[in-house]
Amino acid sequence: MEYQAKYITEDIKLSCYEDKLFKSEIMFEQHMLVWFISGETKIVQAEGTYLFKKGDIFLIPRNQLATIINYPKDGQPHKTVVMHLSTQRLREFYANLGVMPKTPGAQKIRSFSNHPLLESCLASLIPYFEMKDLPANIASLKITEAISILRAIDKDIDEVLANFDEPGKIDLATYMEKNFMFNMPMEKFGYLTGRSLTTFKRDFKKAFNTTPQKWLTQKRLELAHYQFVEKHKKPLDVCYEVGFENLSHFSYAFKKQFGYAPTALLEGKARN
């Protein structure tokens, strides 16, 4: 995989993938503002799948689980400008504004595509990636500008950006039934459900009477079977979207579970 990244600071980067695709499982620990220069990205989350392409601008809230699949498009690499809006930066921005955000509901990706102010702000970063000696405060000013624009164009954005709460203890079974397709370390699942790793494993055993890994594999294979039968998706797409890391391991596990390969199922050769 040909991957290149240029940084103005650790919070602002120009990212470029030139291979056929790049897939990753991510828990977003910071808000991410992304502007697409070229290529496509499929983002799979529990509540739905998003597809972004050239010209799109979107904000991914923090503490979200997602499967990210990046593709080149039309002979152009997958190329984006990414700005991290860290909790520390946002605390500093909101410190003297007296904003008291309401408790947010479900945190979803917010799209700001083709907004001239935001696009101009992000496009203006491009020349800085080629400069060796950049004034220290430039990056800080650009992040402040981006936050200010977001507040001007989205009246509800403070409920996202000014909320600094960490995940509290929530119902583990409900959360895992919704998010099992994301291939995260158990420590991350524990954090997002408000538990230490030890408490997570103990509560998981009580809820499902099995280990997390056995349960996750079973649930992912069941979802894969559904995707083949009802959605007629390709094996590679299903493999990535249900939480497996490579096609060979997925195919082996699928055949072991159901007694036939995904290709046989798609061809109508599988027997009940």
Rank of each mutant, 00 (worst) to 15 (best):
P262E: 05
F28W: 12
S251P: 00
N63C: 11
V34Q: 09
E29A: 06
H115S: 08
P185N: 05
K132P: 02
G194T: 06
T49G: 00
A139I: 04
Q218K: 12
R110S: 04
T41V: 15
T67V: 07
S111M: 08
N114W: 05
R220T: 04
V229L: 14
P262H: 06
T87K: 15
T198L: 05
D237V: 05
K233E: 15
F250H: 13
T49M: 06
L265H: 01
K155V: 08
S86H: 08
A136R: 00
E2H: 11
T211H: 12
Q257T: 12
D156S: 10
K206T: 06
E230D: 02
G39H: 05
G168D: 09
R271S: 11
R195C: 06
R271G: 03
K142P: 04
Y260V: 03
N209E: 11
G168Y: 03
K42M: 07
D133T: 09
T193P: 05
K42F: 05
G98F: 05
E2Q: 10
R91G: 11
K20G: 01
L216N: 03
E29K: 14
D171A: 07
R110M: 02
K188N: 04
T174Q: 10
V44I: 10
T80E: 14
K188S: 06
K178G: 01
C239I: 04
Y50N: 05
A136E: 07
P61S: 09
Y260C: 10
I37E: 10
N70G: 08
K23Y: 03
D56V: 01
R195W: 03
I8C: 06
A152S: 10
K79C: 13
Q30D: 14
H115R: 05
E25M: 10
S86R: 15
Y128M: 09
Y17K: 08
Y94N: 11
G268N: 04
F93K: 10
K23T: 13
E222T: 02
A139N: 02
Y94I: 13
Y240H: 11
S248F: 12
A146I: 06
C121G: 01
T9G: 04
L141V: 09
T263A: 14
Y226P: 00
C239A: 08
M1T: 00
L65H: 08
T67E: 06
K201L: 06
R62D: 03
R271I: 15
F58N: 07
I153F: 05
M186C: 03
E241V: 00
L85E: 09
V238H: 02
L59N: 02
S113D: 07
T193R: 01
Q76A: 05
F258P: 04
M184W: 07
M181Q: 07
D203A: 05
D171G: 12
Y94C: 15
T67H: 07
L125C: 05
F254Y: 15
Q213E: 09
M181G: 01
E2R: 11
F112K: 07
T211I: 00
E159V: 01
D156Y: 07
G243M: 03
